[in-house]
Amino acid sequence: MNFGVKGRIALVLGAGGGLGSAIAKTLAAEGANIALADLDPKALEPIAAELAAAGVNCISLQWDLADAAAIESNIAAIEAKLGPVDILINNTGGPPPTPAAGQSAALWQKSFESMVLSVIQITDRVLPGMRTRGWGRIVTSTSSGVVAPIANLGISNALRLSLVGWSKTLAREVAADGVTANIVLPGRIATARISFLDQAKAARENRPVAEVTAESTGTIPMKRYGTPQEYANTVAFLASDLASYITGSVIRVDGGLIASI
């Protein structure tokens, strides 16, 4: 199937992680040129090498999303090497697991700047070009916690939900210009983040990690964690020409985990 993104420029935030790297590779396989961004440049090295070996035109950027001053220089570097961004994948890391109550203002502020404000500012930087060209895709990855809040992820539940309201509002503003904006909710996808959360819960409750993982997968109708590739397939579709009439949506990739409609 032709996704219609050959030659498009895709910026993938958090590309060094499990979800981001899978998304970058999937878009690259469809012919997109890829800008890889991550706080950890070493995490990008094997991904960039793999893409380069496959003949993909790409650029790697060390990018601290909490640093607003870095946005202009990083986008300018992408534009200079690849061209203007057509596809923006807003994929950010998560805050530490905490209750909602009793967290410091500094932690809330830091998390807001890296998880929410950065996404809005980067989108605002590339959006005018998308609207002028009459084509653009903005896909923002959040969490199943925005539908069914997850225990001990108070900061994540609150801040990621704000991105849902932002994306829905934005989608209506830019739809007539050929730009779509959608939210994708990962359920429990087998990444380092999920492994970390399972380990943290096991330590908190003084239980074996295997027991926590088995309990977790037992609540999923498919009885397993999803794979990064399964998640990336959905994101890549929303970033494609094929999804031109899908905007303002919230798509779950959760194996049926969220019980509500």
Rank of each mutant, 00 (worst) to 15 (best):
L159F: 07
A148L: 13
S118G: 09
P95C: 01
G154E: 03
F112W: 13
G129C: 01
G145E: 11
L153V: 08
S144Y: 12
T98S: 09
I138W: 10
F112Q: 03
T140D: 00
A106V: 14
I138Q: 08
S143L: 06
W108Y: 11
I87K: 10
V164Q: 03
I120S: 01
F112Y: 15
T92H: 09
L159Q: 10
G136R: 14
V139N: 07
G134M: 02
G102N: 09
M130S: 04
S118M: 07
A101T: 15
T142V: 15
S104C: 06
S118V: 13
L159D: 08
T140N: 09
N90C: 07
P95V: 02
G93P: 05
T140E: 00
S114N: 08
P99H: 08
V119H: 01
L161G: 11
M115C: 07
L127W: 13
A151N: 14
G93C: 03
G129I: 02
Q103S: 05
N91C: 10
G154L: 08
V119N: 03
G154N: 08
P95M: 00
Q103Y: 04
T123Q: 06
D124T: 12
T98F: 01
G134E: 05
V139Y: 13
L163K: 01
S143K: 07
G94C: 00
V119P: 01
A148P: 10
F112V: 06
A106T: 15
Q103R: 12
P99R: 07
W135C: 01
N90S: 09
V126A: 03
S111W: 07
S143R: 08
L88Y: 04
A105G: 09
P97K: 04
R137M: 01
I138V: 15
I120F: 09
R137Q: 03
T132Q: 13
P95F: 01
S111R: 09
A106Y: 06
A106Q: 14
L163R: 00
S143N: 11
I138N: 10
L117T: 15
R133I: 07
R125H: 05
Q109I: 09
Q109F: 13
P149T: 13
P99A: 08
M115E: 05
G102F: 01
G129L: 00
L153S: 11
W135I: 12
I138R: 11
S118H: 14
S111V: 14
V139Q: 09
R133H: 14
G93F: 00
A106R: 13
N90G: 01
G145P: 12
V146H: 07
F112G: 02
G93R: 00
M130D: 07
T132A: 10
V126D: 01
G134C: 04
L127T: 14
N152S: 13
G93T: 06
S114G: 06
M115G: 04
S141D: 03
G136I: 15
P149Q: 05
A100L: 12
L117A: 11
I122V: 15
S156T: 12
S162L: 03
G154W: 12
A151D: 14
S162M: 05
L107W: 03
V147L: 14
R133N: 14
L163H: 00
I87Y: 12
V126K: 06
G165E: 00
G102R: 08
P95W: 02
P97H: 03
M115T: 12
